[in-house]
């Protein structure tokens, strides 16, 4: 299992693996929001938690098709499917690798982009914490979407259409934590619910992803 994780991480970090593109996308998106909204500090500050969450979500979406597509094309996915390792574990590892290469870096750079968005002082801690708790759910749900569309030509756009509605609860609770944190309100309830969604998806969704992947490899 760890061998698979290390292999996936190495492939992602290698030049051309697309590592870092998500971060650049996140930065550009934040800049574009500022250009679109105008340089009004108060307005930017009030929409900052939500915009940063949407930005993180879209950056995450951008790299989802890489989770399985490359392995599908060169046939290593078929090998993994016949390997003694259960497919549920394979998709969990794939999700984890995606989170380590996409979600975690987003969490790290989010405070810097928060400065650009004029995020209020107490918001930084909660923004980072909510992203830390919420992005694993994004990667897990994304793995399910990637598994659904793995065999399709032009699957990328369809995958966005399928995955984005599934992201709604995570986004709502995550952005709510960041917003309430920035306004100095109590964040306990949304944070608990966000954690619940993340735990639930990590525990259950790999079974659906594996089932879908088996159908697609049939």
């Amino acid at each position: 299992m760890s061998a698979l994780l290390i292999r996936d991480l190495r492939l992602a970090l290698r030049a051309g693996g697309g590592f870092g593109l998500g971060l650049v996308f996140f930065l550009i998106l934040v800049a574009l929001v500022a250009f679109g909204v105008g340089p009004q500090g108060a307005l930017l500050s009030s929409i900052a938690p939500g915009m940063l969450w949407v930005g993180a979500l879209l950056s995450c979406l951008l790299s989802l098709d890489r989770i399985l597509a490359l392995d599908y094309e060169d046939g290593s996915l078929d090998l993994l499917a016949t390997a003694p390792l259960p497919l549920e574990a394979v998709v969990s590892i794939k999700g984890l690798a995606h989170w380590l290469t996409t979600g975690l870096p987003l969490v790290v750079v989010a405070p810097a982009l928060g400065v650009l968005m004029n995020l209020a002082g107490p918001g930084y801690l909660w923004l980072v914490l909510s992203l830390l708790v919420g992005t694993p759910a994004l990667s897990t749900i994304g793995t399910f979407g990637a598994a659904l569309t793995v065999g399709l030509k032009r699957g990328g756009l369809l995958m966005s259409l399928l995955v984005l509605p599934l992201y709604v609860p995570t986004l709502i609770f995550g952005a709510e934590v960041a917003r309430r944190g920035a306004e100095g309100l109590s964040v306990a309830t949304p944070l608990a619910l966000l954690g619940g969604i993340t735990c639930g998806t990590i525990a259950l969704l790999p079974f659906a992803s594996a089932a879908v992947l088996r159908v697609n490899l049939r």
Binding site: L162, P169, I172, P190, A211
Partner: peptide, 28 residues
């Protein structure tokens, strides 16, 4: 048959997330 399997699983997963969204939106 592949399409039927994939959409059936999507329908089940989607139902769970639709319910979750319903409560999330209520909260929101």
């Amino acid at each position: 048959d592949t399409a039927a399997d994939l959409t059936a699983i999507l329908c089940i997963v989607g139902s769970v997330f639709a319910l979750l969204s319903r409560y999330a939106v209520n909260f929101w």
